[in-house]
Amino acid sequence: MISVERRGEVDWVTMNRPHVLNALNDRHVEELNHYFGALHKDRDCRVVVLKGAGRAYCAGLDLQEGGRSEFDTIDRLAHQRSIAEIVMKMRYCPQPIISLVHGPACGGGFAMALASDIRIAGESVRMNAAFIRIGLSACDIGVSYFLPRLVGASVAAEFMLTGNFITADRALQTGLVSRVVPDDQMEAAAAPLIEQMLTTSPMGLRLTKECLRMSIDAPSLEAAVAMEDRNQILCATSPDFGEGIKAFFEKRRPDYTKKKEQAA
């Protein structure tokens, strides 16, 4: 259902049900939950790239699969939460997530794209809060949380109250994605971003993702600054800070593997 390829310090995660546009079934949900849940303890993976096989990123929940009619309300709520936990684990894992979004990215697929830290869109992308088009609320799987924070309340309301598709041009215009490229150039577009992230210290990269997430919801400037102060002191007391300063003056790339090699 998903395949994970480790390339150096980067996991390339592919949702791999192309015959159904990578729609989510129970096994797919379970594997995504397990993968993102395990990232907290994975210190060798520093960046995650999430993409879909074939013609789509993810078309949302697989409505063709049966087995739901016997569910009572408690079962349905548990199943609903299992899907929502994917985006929660994506948000709380310490590794930055880059989503390469092309073709349909609907419903749960839309939610996973929104939960990512960086979104690069292929020219074919078509995203929407599909839930409202099938008799449900558009507020599902974190979309009502992520979308207004990314594009503002008015644009989010337009997309969520109509379920209209967001094309590549509109996604770029509203800041929903960082850039738009031809579908076959998405990996190439991600490469320099990954390279730049890997020149940062492991602790600095992790704490930056955490602080950015928490600052978006911070109740005050003081709360955000307190988190920033904590991050800087933690990083400054790490050996990586000394290596970063030394590399800066020597005009070379920092080598943050030295400490790991010495520990081994």
Rank of each mutant, 00 (worst) to 15 (best):
L161Y: 14
Y92S: 14
V143Y: 02
S116Y: 13
M127F: 06
A138Q: 11
G103V: 11
E123H: 14
K89I: 05
P94R: 09
V101D: 01
V143F: 04
I166P: 00
R81E: 13
S144A: 14
L161S: 14
V125K: 00
L147V: 00
L150V: 05
G142P: 05
V87W: 02
I132L: 09
V155F: 04
I120S: 00
I132T: 11
A121D: 00
A171I: 07
V155T: 15
R133C: 04
Y145I: 03
R133N: 04
A129R: 01
C106G: 01
Y145C: 12
S154W: 11
I98W: 10
L176C: 12
I83N: 04
M88H: 07
P148K: 06
G109R: 06
N164R: 14
G175P: 09
L176K: 01
G152P: 07
G103M: 07
R81F: 08
S99V: 04
F131H: 03
I83W: 02
F159H: 06
A138W: 07
R119E: 10
M90I: 13
R149Q: 14
H102E: 13
T174C: 12
G175D: 08
R170D: 07
Y92K: 13
M112W: 02
A156L: 01
P148Q: 05
G152F: 04
S144D: 13
A105E: 09
Q95H: 12
G108K: 02
C139S: 15
A153Q: 11
F146Q: 02
D169Q: 13
I132Y: 09
A130D: 03
L150Q: 10
G108V: 04
L147G: 03
E158Y: 05
A168V: 08
S99L: 07
R119T: 08
L147P: 00
I86M: 00
V143R: 01
Q95K: 15
I98H: 05
C93S: 15
N128K: 06
F146E: 12
R119M: 10
F110V: 03
A130V: 04
A168W: 02
A129F: 06
F146H: 02
A138Y: 04
I98E: 03
A157H: 10
Q95L: 13
V151Q: 04
M88A: 11
I166Y: 02
I118Y: 12
H79T: 13
D169M: 05
